[in-house]
């Protein structure tokens, strides 16, 4: 009887000890939350680094491992950053400007890629140039570089933004509206653009000058507490950018596989992506124009000084 109780006692003690030590063991490995918004080919360095395990390798010396999340809505990214559930994010510049304007502690630490803003029109459309958009309906996700780009390019072509009817649509709804002919044009980014071109349903307008800056942003609190880890992550991104620029064929195959895309779509979009880029004064000025655009339209209540408040290299 006592022996049986003793065995149970030992088992219970071991279980309790093991149970109590579990969180301690788990706490030794830090998880670094890395996220992206939707699918985009401009995340190619990130996708290649993820596939090749470079983030894992870079974080291993810090007893840390990456956790990857693809966000489908922009607000969820800022909510995850504000609640310390996301540490690093790859996206275009407006969401991070919005986050900064709302007081969320986040900084742009690297530029992944630069690409032009595309405006798609249906195959056979009478719209041939940007100034033909006057009086037309354009689907675009509000607050994105694409929205800014349509208005900036229209203004440069002598068309007042008020003369274009912009309808706020996320890419899946924009695709449904574009393919069913419910809108005259669709301002969106690769691979959505190339999917329509490859399918023979659309073509892009020439002459636009607006660009999308695909950035890497790091949560301020994370960077302050883990400066070496943040530096290692920036190093991975820089290495991946150089590798992607030097090995386009292999990179295209990896991106197609990682993003679940037709390699033809990725190959068609590839030349418009410039990976040998950095946060130069010109790029910072471009990001500032977008910050001012969001502020002037009343979309954010605080003006962000990009160079002073947002960039941290």
């Amino acid at each position: 009887m006592f022996r049986r109780l003793g065995i149970f006692g030992c088992a219970a003690t071991l279980l309790l000890t093991g149970g109590l030590s579990l969180p301690a063991i788990a706490a030794e490995v830090t998880t670094v939350g890395i996220g992206t918004f939707s699918i985009a080919i401009d995340y190619s360095p990130y996708l290649v680094a993820k596939q090749k395990g470079w983030f894992d390798q870079a974080l291993a010396p810090f007893h840390a491992k990456p956790s990857f999340t693809q966000f489908e809505t922009l607000p969820a990214i800022n909510e995850a950053l504000a609640t310390d559930r996301l540490d690093v994010v790859f996206e275009a510049e407006p969401p991070v400007i919005i986050a900064k304007a709302a007081g969320i502690d986040v900084h742009v630490t690297d530029l992944g890629c630069t690409l032009p803003v595309d405006i798609l029109v249906p195959t056979g459309s009478k719209i041939r140039a940007i100034n033909d958009l006057k009086g037309k309906t354009v689907a675009v996700l509000a607050g994105t570089s694409s929205q800014y780009g349509v208005l900036a390019d229209a203004s440069a072509a002598g068309v007042d933004g008020k003369d274009i009817e912009m309808v706020d649509m996320a890419p899946p709804e924009g695709k449904a509206a574009f393919e069913s002919g419910k809108v005259d044009a669709w301002a969106v980014w690769p691979p959505w653009v190339e999917q329509e071109i490859v399918a023979g349903r659309g073509s892009t307008l020439e002459g636009g000058q607006a660009t999308i800056q695909s950035i890497m942003a790091i949560r301020g609190g994370f960077e302050d507490r883990n400066p070496k880890m943040a530096k290692a992550i920036i190093g991975v991104e820089e290495h991946a950018k150089a590798w992607v620029a030097a090995h386009p064929d292999e990179a295209i195959a990896i991106v197609a596989q990682e993003a679940g895309l037709d390699p033809k779509v990725v190959r068609l979009a590839w030349p418009k992506h410039h990976f040998s880029v950095s946060l130069t004064p010109d790029v910072i000025s471009d990001i500032q124009r977008k910050a001012d655009f969001l502020f002037k339209r009343g979309l954010v209540r605080t003006r962000v000084d990009v160079d002073k408040d947002l960039i941290r290299q």
Partner: peptide
Amino acid sequence: LIAANRGIGWFIYDARNFSR
């Protein structure tokens, strides 16, 4: 959320989108 620019539901969505 379907291509709106008015309405109380859109207002909430827009405010969340732009962190207001």
